[in-house]
Design a binder for these strands. Structure first.
Lengths: 239, 239
DNA sequence: CAATTTGGTTAAGAACTCGTAATCCCTGCG
DNA sequence: CGCAGGGATTACGAGTTCTTAACCAAATTG
């Protein structure tokens, strides 16, 4: 099966990652691949910016090169830990030899990966780090009433019938489904689905929500997407 | 990997085992003994590495300690099974109570051995598991709907009709078929089929996918290869 | 060594997505 | 009732992504 599981592991929840890598080309390649795999990726080109962004924003995981301008990867980990942050950090190292300090990372719940590595290996380790502890595998399918979402296959069915969605629609639905029953505010959607941290002054959300609605709810008696006036939207069975 | 690993796994009589054991001394002792018994043995020192290696490579059998750092033995079995792997797994445990045995087997472990044990007993059980039949053997043919792929014969048929493919096309199809139903990203394809670890800045994948499509899907009403915009491709029956 | 096959590149255009903006539609309140 | 404000819907177009055919070089074959 080899990389089977890797593929399987890579299309999960929309997680926010920070990639700290000074080699522009490598950074671009990795970021692209990770985005294809469904992650939201921010990139920092050096240690200083990286550390700043890591403290400024909350990431689910940080991937840092070992050797970086200004501040190297290991130091970033140390500083983050000193600030009380517990974000898992994955160190990319060009060094072949096993460094004691790096070895120590594993104990701290973090991990390292020696270059060159297969992309699949990276996603596998990311998934391993994102798992909330042993035994709790990340979900691969979500269910809301008769609606089923297959994250690996990027497939949605309702009442057994197949529903085609665009990428944005799928992301939006996944975001809602992960918080099913809870009201999701516009701001939350803007950040979680569009990665916008300011008000775009447009009605992007409304438009996409409308599109998603026609796909999900039009041909069915019970709508699953509900508007909460003045607050946001909910995905749930009851009105 | 594709055809390489195939040759490796099916045509080589030397059995490939993965031993996941955190106790370095025990691991060394067992590995040595198993190698003397004619097995090729890889060792992983903790659950995370073990699970990774188990998915990364095709092993005929996996021997895993029950208690491991990061991810324990039973969880490894569960995860492998969830990934569709059928590798026989032998769990080693210091726990001897009946409950533990049941739990271990229910998790999908194929056998259970309580420490301390005689080395002979270990080899006996390994042989039993390996002998236990074709059901556990590595796949030599893959099926997706009416499409059949004979990995050993390097032959493809759809609806009984023979389809001729070039080497690249076959590799591509095999890669997709091994992950049928799952979206395969371009990056993954680039690495898995072309062994390119950077962006080739061309559309090789698209072109070959198009060629594969004309071979596989042109003369049939239901296409099996589907594009997932912005992500990659899937091989599956449904649209 | 010519002929054929194979695999990578280029490029044109087809198909599709997504954001904007204009318009319509509620809902609640004065 | 009519108005205001939030929300829904629709159409459009720019930009992107995918498909395909044609081309060429390298490898393979007779």
């Amino acid at each position: 099966m080899s990389t089977d599981s890797l593929a399987k592991c890579s299309l999960n929840s929309r997680m926010h990652l920070l990639l700290i890598e000074d080699d522009a080309e490598a950074a671009k390649y990795l970021a692209k691949g990770l985005r294809e795999s469904g992650y939201t990726v921010d990139v920092a080109a050096n240690g200083r910016d990286g550390l700043f962004q890591a403290t400024e924003q909350q990431y689910e995981l940080i991937i840092a090169d070992r050797q970086l301008p200004h501040i190297d990867g290991l130091t970033i980990v140390q500083m983050l830990r000193r600030q009380g942050s517990k974000v898992p950090v994955l160190i990319l190292s060009a060094l072949g030899s096993v460094d004691d300090r790096i070895e120590g990372l594993r104990a701290g719940g973090d991990d390292y990966l020696t270059k060159p590595f297969a992309f699949g290996e990276l996603t596998a380790r990311i998934e391993a780090l994102l798992r909330r502890g042993p035994g709790v595998a990340a979900a691969t399918r979500l269910k809301v009433a008769d609606l089923e979402i297959d994250l690996l296959g990027r497939m949605v069915t309702r009442a057994g019938r197949r529903i085609e969605l665009t990428t944005k629609e799928f992301q939006l639905l996944e975001f809602l489904a992960r918080r099913q029953g809870q009201v999701v505010t516009r701001t939350l959607l803007l950040e979680g689905v569009w990665d916008l941290h300011f008000d775009p002054q447009t009605n992007v959300i409304d438009v996409h929500m409308s599109r998603l609605r026609t796909s999900i709810d039009r041909d069915f008696p019970k709508p699953l997407i509900h508007t909460v006036r003045g607050a946001g939207y909910v995905l749930r069975d009851e009105p």
